[in-house]
Amino acid sequence: MKDEVFKKTILVVDDEENVSELLKLYLEAEGFIVEIAEDGLKALELARSINPDLIILDIMLPFKNGWQVAREIRKDMDTPIIMLSAKGEESDKILGLNLGGDDYVTKPFSPGEITARVKAILRRTKIDVKESVVLKFPQLVIDFSKYEIIASGTKILSTPKEVELMWLLANNPEIVFTRERLLDKIWGYDYLGDSRTVDTHVKRLRRKIEKGRLYTYVHTVWGVGYKFGVIKNEEKSL
């Protein structure tokens, strides 16, 4: 068994056969099961039927592009997504992450790099669990055993990395984590992304659990990183 990924299923979505077959070759050599979709419609069909552990999703696809596919997947699935694109502009990367992508890779790329990113994302974060894996705060519950976040009684559709990030911060209230430390704790020391990944995930978490609600939980420590603390909105403005 290689890095505990044996029998995990990866869905590769790319309309370039040489790209998808090369990724399939590398990933299967690492013990993954690989399924391939060549267009957006087939990607959604396979994602819902096989429930993969991770999706590698190209942006430029027939019928439905990668942006559309990511939006549809995020309506009812929290599967990690690595987005592929020939576009390297920062705005495209930010859009991909905001749509729920866990990573963004620009073509051309090394198949070995993609394999490393897949393994880093799938590797479970080794967080020290103290007395309980369920954390409760005013209008917020984080159940790490079920990978659930419940805000104001409503279950929030969250990716595994969002739950891990929220749990780590909440389990260490008022402790300031630098972006680099969060990358190391949640994504792993061999993660090949940068600190903007943390910023994007925090922004998404705030939108999901704080927008229109009475409390805020995740706070920016300017020039350093982030910390967790329960603040009632009227108190925040004082």
Rank of each mutant, 00 (worst) to 15 (best):
Y26C: 10
G66W: 04
L192A: 11
D190I: 00
V221H: 06
V202L: 15
S20Y: 12
S20F: 13
G96Y: 14
M60P: 04
D92C: 03
G88P: 04
V163Q: 10
R213M: 05
G229D: 07
V133N: 05
N172Y: 09
M77L: 12
V218F: 12
Y215W: 03
G188N: 03
L11S: 01
T178H: 10
L25F: 11
G188V: 00
A120R: 05
F228L: 14
V202P: 06
L22R: 11
A170T: 08
R206S: 08
V34W: 04
Y217P: 03
W187V: 00
R124H: 02
I186G: 03
F109C: 07
E235T: 12
G101H: 07
K8Y: 01
E89Q: 02
T125C: 12
K227Q: 15
V118I: 07
I33W: 01
L165G: 07
K93R: 14
R71V: 04
R179I: 03
I33T: 12
L205H: 14
P138E: 03
L97I: 13
K203T: 12
E30D: 15
L182I: 13
P52C: 05
I59F: 09
T220I: 05
Y226H: 15
L23H: 02
Q68V: 06
L23D: 05
I175K: 14
E148K: 15
V163L: 04
G31P: 10
Y104G: 10
K130A: 03
N51E: 14
E180G: 13
Q68N: 01
F177V: 14
L169V: 14
A120I: 04
S237L: 13
I59H: 05
M83I: 15
A116P: 01
E21M: 13
L157K: 11
I55F: 04
K24Q: 15
K136G: 00
A43I: 03
V141E: 15
K208R: 14
S132M: 07
F6I: 00
S195Y: 02
S152F: 08
G112R: 10
Y189E: 11
L84F: 10
F32H: 05
L183V: 00
D143E: 10
N233I: 12
I114W: 06
L46V: 01
K211N: 11
K136C: 05
E148N: 12
L22F: 09
S85I: 08
E35F: 00
S152Q: 15
T154H: 11
A170C: 11
N98A: 06
R196M: 09
T178N: 09
G40P: 01
I156F: 08
V34M: 04
W222R: 07
I81E: 03
I50V: 15
R124K: 01
A47E: 06
T200A: 13
K107W: 06
S237E: 13
L44I: 05
R71E: 15
I142Y: 07
E90W: 05
